[in-house]
Write a protein that binds this DNA or RNA. Sequence first.
DNA 1: TTGTAGGCGTTATCAG
DNA 2: CTGATAACGCCTACAA
Lengths: 355, 355
Amino acid sequence: MTTIKKTAALKSKKALARAPGPVTLHMVAVAAGVSPSTVSRILNGTAVVSELKKKAVEDAVAKLGFVANPVARGLAGGRTLSIGVVTQAIDSPFYGVALSGIEDALNPAGYSPLFVSGHWNAASEARCLTVLRSRRVDGIIVLTGRLSNQALRACAKSLPVVVTGRTLKAPGLYALNFDNFEGGLIATKHLIELGHRRIAFITGDPAHPDASERLRGYRTALDAASIPFDAALVVPGEYHEISGLKAVDQLMASQQKFTAIFAANDQMAFGATLGLQRHSLRVPEDISVVGFDDLPTAPYAIPPLSTIRHPAYELGRLAALAMLQLIAGDTPSADVPAPFLIARQSSRRFAQQAA
Amino acid sequence: MTTIKKTAALKSKKALARAPGPVTLHMVAVAAGVSPSTVSRILNGTAVVSELKKKAVEDAVAKLGFVANPVARGLAGGRTLSIGVVTQAIDSPFYGVALSGIEDALNPAGYSPLFVSGHWNAASEARCLTVLRSRRVDGIIVLTGRLSNQALRACAKSLPVVVTGRTLKAPGLYALNFDNFEGGLIATKHLIELGHRRIAFITGDPAHPDASERLRGYRTALDAASIPFDAALVVPGEYHEISGLKAVDQLMASQQKFTAIFAANDQMAFGATLGLQRHSLRVPEDISVVGFDDLPTAPYAIPPLSTIRHPAYELGRLAALAMLQLIAGDTPSADVPAPFLIARQSSRRFAQQAA
DNA sequence: TTGTAGGCGTTATCAG
DNA sequence: CTGATAACGCCTACAA
């Protein structure tokens, strides 16, 4: 009696809980008249199975609407079908787009991204890795960041790793680097070709490899045009609007003469443009401004911003695809798009008389 | 012999694989000289345990650096310590900030957010729910979206649900609604107080409840000021910059007279401002523009945008906190901040002569 | 208070 | 080719 009662209670409880509830692999096996192992094999293509049973299982799967439980899968030793993504700030206009590319590439393959933010902080990023590993992700994508190459290599020993924003070779690791140097070069060259010679540069955080690369591009372009480098025209920034604004204030305070500004990213370019306006300087009539990244908002800025195309979405997509290849045991290969200039209306020919 | 060999091989393999490897609960139990269940109980506070053993276990945990495997936890029926978050677009400037708030509130509690994008599409959002449930998340936060109340209620039957952007009561569900009506009202009133009477409105996607609420606020403010509603001044938008731009084109083409524009979100306000400029109309000298949301970029727009403060970060944080309370079995309560105007430089008093 | 035993849903290893 | 039978790491009755 007691037993019967209990069973009934259990059943009704289950029926209630699993209203549209979890269909298990076992149920599929029963429905198809085969063993659970066979179902698993078919689902994973782990082994050859007779066409007949295969059909039966597929029908059962379809009819029952079975979806494998990634959690159980993960425990059983295999993949969790989730990829850890270490980003720096989930609300960054640049990285946000990259995350979107990652998501779009991962989903069709049945993988889910697990995003964690490192906040531009190596210690925090290391903690992210710990969290991701404890969650048994199948691989980790690191978007730029400050982790040491060594830490990355160590991580790659136990898990496939794809990293952007640096060049690095190691087993189980694939690095996707965008040519920031070239981008900095092109942007500066653009300004030089427009007749500018006093070109200020607002840097990114020097701890970023990409920031220093962009600066190097700037200097190289100057050299190539035989324009002497003037350290007073280089002002520090940290990639946010506010630092572009402050940089302009600093530039004005220093009484430096300049006819153009190249900001190491679009956000600072926006801030700089506002700063110039506050000093009654018009863009581009008085000062030309060029940014870097080509954020989705760049075409809608006033004036629409001339900038270097940095394909975040594509980069995210490529990183995810590389991860998929790594997991599949293939050697990833990705054609990272080269930077190029998008000349909009914030830059124009330097008018001599305005000097 | 064979057995011995095998064991040895296995051991070495394990030792290799788990270089800095997974410390299991079982290992902690051994180290502390207690049973695994005791360890589990202490970890989860499931039952009272003697102080002595508790201490021993805690020491062992610390020494071994044990971190419970969320995957196994999830399978065993308990929490996965992960919260599913259905967002609409991970790269949205507005939602990105909200996600950041969610992340910041969840992390200290040991939970990880699992973000999935619904792409403003009910079917896609429903798929997101399926994915999240299959991953055994402990709860689901839905950021606005188009899911029916019914679907949400059904979901809440088996999982705690927190939803933003609508008002809804149901067991296991908590809704956090921002007062979009009030926001629309305030924005319009601001313009009216500035002397504007021909105020155009660029709508959001009518399928959004918040879009229609903002429109309602606009109409109500007009009514209150006895300004007749003119449908010709209401142009459709879909929340992106481009639609603000197009809306202005449409407005100009229709030859309507207007001295101000209220856009249902900042992105459209930016687009509208650019559009006005293309028609040689200055903001705010010729036309005042007010947006909605107060995106992080709004203060840096040119001119800095007057807008309605919509605290995305705080909303995300509150949603996450409410979820934590729901999980703890408490009844959530959240004080959603009220909208308020941030008057910057895109709006100004209507100068009669400019009419 | 504490330990033992069984199970969560899959995969993997073995025999057949 | 296929089906038992163990794990996977943890939680939770149940028993002691």
